[in-house]
Structures are given as C-alpha cells and as structure tokens.
Simulated scan of single mutants.
Amino acid sequence: MTGKTTGIVLGAMIAGVSAGAAPADHYTVGDLAKAMEALKAKAAATGGAADTLATYNNHHTMLSYRTKDGTAEIHARYADMFYIVRGKATLVTEGTLEGGHEESPGEVRGSRVAGGKTTMLGEGDVVHIPAGTPHQLLIAPGEELLYFVIKIKEHD
C-alpha cells in the first residue's frame, strides 16, 4: 500500500470505531448536587437512597445519599469504588459481618461490621472496597453524605 492508501484505510477504520463507540458520560459536581435534591426526598423515611445512573459491560454507576448509617454488607462479585461528593462519614471495612443474611444472590446484608478498620471519609476522597470485603458507612447525627459509586464486577 502507498502512504496515501494506508492513510485512507486507517482513517476509515478510525471512523468506523468512532461511529460505533458509545458516547462518554459526564457528570459535573453541579449535576450531582442537583440529583441529591431528588435523593433527599427519597431518603426522608429511611435515611438513605440511591439511583443507578448508567449500566455498562462490567460495571455500573450510582449516586447515593445518606443521613443515617448504612447497612453492613458484603458483595461477592462486585467491588465498590466511592467518590465522596459532599459530606463525611466513617467507613468500617474488614472485620466480621454480624447478623448476616443473603438478600439476593451474592449480596449479604447484616446489622454491623464488628472489629473492623475505620477510615474517615470526606469530600474529594476516593475509596476502593474489593469484592468479598465486609463494609459499612456510619453517618454522625446531623451529617449528610452524597457519594458517587462505581460497582465493578470482579468475579462471576
């Protein structure tokens, strides 16, 4: 092939890839803060609410809002990655899940994580919780937490 022909073929290949590619998703802090208002109304009764934002091949994204402690949990197949948009919380990881019961396949919920490691989370923090790791978010009275979640499939 000549240089000109190679350029045309590569250009066509790139155009073909671009034409079939999914659009990029973009959420500004303002978008997330606006979405928080809707979550606040949903969370009024229970102290927590979440909405799935998008679903992809091996992960999905969510936005969660809390004013009360979250349930202790273990995800057998999914890792959680949190980005704290607003507020603060204490994350308890590792340790032992007490009162555990399977809520759905691969999803165990319990009353608390006992003997775990505590980590203070604040605005701008990012945390990765591997699949199979007990974890729970604790919210101090009067506090609120808005966090972006990426649930990444690690195991089948």
Rank of each mutant, 00 (worst) to 15 (best):
A24F: 12
D51T: 00
P23C: 08
T52I: 13
G48K: 09
K40C: 08
A38D: 10
S64A: 13
A72F: 07
T61N: 02
A54H: 11
H60E: 10
Y65H: 03
N57W: 11
G47I: 06
T71I: 09
M62G: 00
Y56W: 14
A38F: 06
H26R: 15
G30Q: 13
R66M: 11
N57V: 13
A35T: 06
A45I: 06
A33W: 04
L39T: 03
L39A: 04
A22C: 15
E73Y: 06
H60A: 01
V29I: 15
A41I: 03
Y27A: 02
K40N: 04
H60C: 05
A38K: 11
A72L: 01
A44N: 04
T61E: 00
A35P: 02
A24H: 14
E73Q: 13
Y27M: 09
M36D: 09
A35N: 07
K34Y: 01
N58E: 12
D51R: 03
R66F: 09
N58L: 12
A43Q: 06
E37L: 01
K40L: 07
A35F: 08
A38V: 11
Y27I: 01
A35M: 05
G47N: 00
T46L: 07
A24L: 15
K34N: 05
T61P: 02
T55H: 11
D31G: 01
Y65Q: 02
A45S: 13
T61L: 07
H59S: 10
A43M: 03
T28D: 13
T61Q: 07
K40D: 00
Y56C: 11
N58Q: 13
P23S: 14
A33K: 12
D51A: 10
N57T: 14
D51N: 06
M36G: 02
K34V: 02
A45K: 11
V29P: 01
A49E: 03
D31E: 10
T55I: 14
A22E: 15
T28W: 12
A44S: 10
D31Q: 08
T71K: 11
T46W: 09
T46V: 09
E73N: 02
A54R: 09
K34R: 11
A43I: 02
H59N: 10
M36I: 05
P23H: 12
A33H: 11
T71M: 10
L53E: 10
M36K: 04
T61A: 06
N57L: 13
Y65E: 09
G47E: 00
E73G: 04
A44W: 03
K40S: 02
